[in-house]
Design a protein around this nucleic acid. Structure first.
Lengths: 227, 227
DNA sequence: AATATGCTTCGACTACGGTCGAACTATGAA
DNA sequence: TTCATAGTTCGACCGTAGTCGAAGCATATT
């Protein structure tokens, strides 16, 4: 009853419906303003503001002021990771918010998870990189191998700028729909944005859905075959 | 606001202080009765009963009736995993329930996490098994290699009975204190109970602390050196 | 300056849910 | 059968926290 960190506080923060909606909205990886989040949660701006300050004090968010706007994003990958885990539990106990709607299959196919690719395609990417020896798991943490670094640069990803960033390069993130790992970290983000540049994929503006173009799917298949 | 599983419900379940206390108590891996959990949470038996039925409906617990007792344990490793994740967030935002008490260092050194070894020693074990090629990570899931199977049997672990169980053999579980992975799954449990048989370690009855005997620490060092 | 927009703070209202006492059921012991 | 112990159900109480209107700041735009 006394040892260990205080779970209840954090969980209670996530446990309010309005706040949970905001957090899931932020799982898209985009930074959103107070009013956008209010809209997303279905509450007035005042209450949204109150909720956001609480989430912020709880260390779940990262606020940035820009002019008269205030942008919020998730604090870090750990937060996203826990949220995905909770989604897994909720999905497992059959508590989907919408019972396998048409969007649902799209979400399972490919979606954005805090700026990196998740869903079926996300785990395919991850498995492929591991299988080709581009990524290696040393105990806990993923590392980019030499061949992996070459591959990334040949894929027009600038590793130096990624490395200069203080966020970890590769991380694994558990997928609630696939129940498998996909690639997170700044490299994961770089891959997704590169896919966008190549217009292999397109991110839906309002949801987390990621759609592959016909050509994009073909190229993805070619480069990241899961033989 | 509409897609994805309903996080809020699960999080709210964990978010109540009394329930959170029960869940952390169950992180020891032991099944506890209603009255024990009531004691642990600091509430009367009636309220405990109500809490437990809610947690159960939420799919977080696994109840078992035995005579006039009713035992509860965590439903599965996923639940434990999410709880550890939440502990990580809480610890990260500086919300420790007790500020680095004397127990705290013991907990970080070695503790029990849903019946397997966690903390510093837990991650050491995991890293060693990976480094020696006893465990391999194929994309998402851990697998026991051939040499690993030999090692386990030489360590008096009966793999056949473990495999006959329907729970996964090896899983990784994120450690909130170390922020690294340690070994979960039935193999993880088997290792811990084997350590107990060898009296390398002793589990505290009331807390999650695991203490290594002098000899146990030496032997552990010898077998699972982190060179 | 004057006005508009984005966000925060304050205060009051309300409701949901945690809490326990008391009564009830079920299993085991004498 | 009778008593004791473990757990559940019911009902009533109460507090906390989510909610919004209104007013107050702060940053842009004219």
């Amino acid at each position: 009853m006394k040892e260990g960190p205080d779970i209840a506080h954090v969980a209670a923060l996530i446990g309010d419906p309005a706040r949970a909606n905001m957090l899931t909205a932020l799982m898209s990886g985009k930074a959103l303003t107070v009013s956008e989040l209010a809209e997303e949660a279905g509450v007035t701006i005042q209450t949204a503001s109150s909720h956001l300050s609480k989430l912020n004090e709880g260390g779940l968010l990262r606020p940035r002021k820009q002019g008269r706007h205030k942008y919020f994003s998730l604090a870090n990958d750990d937060v996203a990771h826990v949220l995905e885990g909770l989604m897994g539990l909720a999905a497992g106990s059959g508590h989907l918010r919408k019972r396998t709607g048409p969007k649902d299959t799209e979400l399972r196919k490919a979606r954005v998870c805090y700026n990196h690719l998740a869903g079926d395609m996300g785990t395919q990417l991850f498995d492929s990189l591991i299988a080709q020896g581009h990524l290696a798991m040393n105990g806990e943490n993923l590392t980019l191998t030499e061949t992996g670094a070459n591959f990334a640069t040949s894929f027009q990803i600038d590793l130096d700028t990624l490395r200069s960033n203080r966020t970890p390069l590769c991380r694994e993130c558990l997928d609630w729909s696939e129940r498998r790992s996909h690639l997170a970290g700044s490299l994961g983000r770089a891959f997704l944005s590169r896919f966008e540049e190549l217009s292999w994929v397109k991110r839906d503006q309002k949801t987390r859905v990621v759609t592959f173009s016909r050509n994009g799917a073909k190229e993805f298949e070619r480069q990241f075959a899961v033989n």
